[in-house]
């Protein structure tokens, strides 16, 4: 099959997630998914001197736990696909410098988690890589500096704002049979419905998630009920109802199976405004909790739709709107049980 429909890829030869690793900051560690993370840092600085180093520490931790679980040495990994939210993808680049694995740096804002996973799966399936490592990270303080104000600045944020997840998720993709199989992927289009408020990314990204999910279902000839869970990345409590209503307009009721990683990663009483966001948001939830549930057999087939707001502070000042993008990957329970 290979290319399926308009925007989807079905993997003919089975590709698997051999192992995964996650590392998070303190607030995520106090959240409901605490027990599913491999490493929880009690300090936002993660024992480092500045925020950028802290984010790098998180990615290194995630990569190391991932490789350790698979029992694979760095030297046996032939491709590293990494991305983050910082200018020039610095976290991925500097972690790759340390790992010494050939790097493909990727940027899709918060959709990078599934962008890297889908690309890795395609490259492994086609035989260009035997073992590909994917990793993404975000850090609340580096993201604040990159996109908003200094961390200690006392500006008031509206309720529609999201809170960047501090953490990193990594996964190792190969053809070695494992409990989690990568079945298909759908690459999203950039959708821009003219939302200009950088403190409301849920509204900006909902059309992208809707377009990708709808296209995915059409391409694959499926209905929402074919999935145990359709998990969006970081639509938050604002974008979630918009997406559900957009899908309903097209005759798809995703509400019973839909979850949003941004709402799963924190307790509702944590000070995170409308929910979590960032590359790490979908990554730490998928590579932790959702993979665990697949391995346990709680789920048979899930669709992860990582949503990204392709927001640039310079473009915001030039009065541009926020383009959104969403990439989807289908994960199924593999033939091999744990």
């Amino acid at each position: 099959m290979g290319k399926t429909g308009v925007q989807s890829w079905s993997f003919i030869n089975p590709v698997y997630i051999q192992s995964s690793g996650t590392a998070v900051g303190p607030l995520e560690g106090q959240g409901p998914l605490s027990s599913t993370f491999d490493r929880v840092h009690d300090d936002l600085h993660c024992g480092e001197d500045n925020w950028e180093l802290a984010e790098r520490r998180l990615m290194i931790d995630a990569v190391h736990s991932c490789l350790q679980k698979a029992g694979v040495d760095e030297s046996n990994v032939d491709l590293f696909l990494a991305g983050d939210l910082l200018n020039q993808n610095v976290t991925g680049n500097y972690v790759a410098r340390q790992l010494g694995i050939p790097l493909l740096g990727m940027f899709g804002a918060c959709s990078t988690s599934m962008e890297t996973l889908a690309t890795a799966a395609a490259l492994v399936e086609a035989g260009y890589s035997k073992q590909a490592l994917v990793a993404v990270s975000s850090h609340n303080a580096t993201a604040e500096r990159q996109f908003r104000y200094p961390t200690e600045y006392g500006g008031q944020k509206p309720k529609t704002a999201t809170f960047t997840v501090t953490g990193s998720g990594a996964a190792l993709v190969s053809k070695t049979p494992s409990p989690v199989k990568i079945e298909a992927a759908t690459i999203g289009k950039v959708m821009d419905y003219k939302i200009k408020d950088p403190f409301d990314m849920g509204s900006a990204m909902a059309p992208a998630a809707w377009d990708t999910i709808k296209t995915h279902l059409e391409d694959m000839g499926r209905v929402p009920e074919d999935y145990d869970v359709i998990a969006t990345g970081d639509l938050s409590s604002v974008g979630t109802p918009i997406l559900r209503d957009l899908m309903k307009q097209d005759g798809y009721d995703i509400t019973p199976v839909h979850k949003d990683c941004g709402l799963m990663v924190y307790h509702s009483d944590q000070p995170v405004f409308s929910g979590g966001s960032g590359c790490a948001c979908s990554a730490v939830v998928t590579y932790g909790k959702l993979l665990d549930d697949l391995k346990l057999g709680t789920y048979q087939r899930i669709l992860i739709v990582a949503t990204g707001a392709l927001m640039s502070p310079t473009m915001m000042q030039q009065k541009e709107s926020i383009p959104g993008i969403a990439h989807a990957v289908v994960l199924t329970k593999g033939e091999v049980s744990q």
């Binding site: 001197d49 500045n50 925020w51 950028e52 500096r145 104000y149 200094p150 961390t151 200690e152 600045y153 006392g154």
Partner: peptide, 9 residues
Amino acid sequence: TSAALEHKS
């Protein structure tokens, strides 16, 4: 002050 702290690194 917040800008100073932020760019100390």
